[in-house]
């Protein structure tokens, strides 16, 4: 589904991606992890075409994404910071995104799921961070695309919504979607992720299941396993 070959990216003098190779060819939940500044977001944004790589190719469903924009209709993306035009009402934003991307009826169900009805006619500028994140989730999931990218999806969510989100992710996974998640909440990752993609200094340091990671680092606990990688490499 997604194929990344030898991806390089520099921001100024800062080498962020240093030859990333990544292949996702089956459905499942992939947690992209790594320390701050390791290049997680850059990889995600490269797939989305928001960052233009210096070198390397990215293929989504076997089409090179360079100078292409249509492939994005196969990707749903949840950005990290949800900041919408503050003059718009929630319902208008949903309508607008539908207008830009195509019609769907999933929005009603999702609004139901996240209990957003009371906010539909409020302006986005007046919403709390958590409510905005729910709107963000609605916008992301309503299109039912085969690839889903979630950048810090748990930010600001109340426990009930978090449970709903996990359920939603599980349901989507069962449809055979590839779901890429970045998160700092290790418990959340451990609970949902099938595969861990660990990035360090601009390269894929590890790709495999949580079990494999635990074995490799000789730790019993997932959080410790992650910490182990970091301390070993930075010692």
């Amino acid at each position: 589904m997604v194929e990344i070959v030898d991806l390089h990216k520099k921001f100024g003098k800062n080498n962020v991606l240093n030859g990333v190779d990544l292949n996702i060819n089956e459905g499942g939940i992939f947690a992209v992890l790594g320390p701050n500044g390791s290049g997680k977001t850059t990889i995600i944004k490269s797939i989305l075409g928001m960052v233009i790589p210096d070198n390397g190719t990215i293929k989504v469903f076997n089409t090179n994404i360079k100078k292409n924009s249509n492939y994005r209709s196969k990707i749903d993306y949840l950005p990290q910071i949800a900041n919408f035009p503050s003059n718009l009402k929630v319902i208008e934003l949903i309508k607008m995104i539908k207008d830009l991307r195509g019609q769907t009826n999933n929005d009603q169900k999702l609004i139901e799921t996240f209990k957003l009805q009371p906010f539909l006619n409020k302006k986005l500028g007046t919403l709390s961070g958590g409510t905005k994140q729910k709107v963000n989730l609605v916008l992301t999931f309503m299109f039912d695309s085969p690839i889903v990218i979630l950048d810090e999806p748990t930010t600001g969510l109340d426990p009930i919504s978090l449970i709903r989100l996990k359920e939603l992710i599980t349901v989507e996974k069962k449809k055979g979607k590839a779901i890429l998640i970045t998160s700092h909440i290790m418990s959340f990752v451990e609970e949902v992720a099938d595969q861990i993609v660990f990035i360090l200094e601009g390269k894929i340091y590890f790709k495999g299941s949580i079990e494999e990671l635990k074995t490799k680092t000789e730790q019993n606990d997932f959080e410790h396993a992650i910490a182990n990688i970091l301390t070993k490499n930075h010692a």
């Binding site: 989305l48 075409g49 928001m50 924009s69 249509n70 492939y71 994005r72 209709s73 990707i75 993306y77 950005p79 910071i81 949800a82 900041n83 919408f84 035009p85 995104i97 830009l100 991307r101 916008l139």
Partner: peptide, 16 residues
């Protein structure tokens, strides 16, 4: 001011 909104749009199947 519309930077974040722009980013939202960038992830949609729209030409830059």
């Amino acid at each position: 001011n519309s930077k974040e909104f722009t980013e939202l749009l960038l992830a949609q199947p729209l030409k830059r």
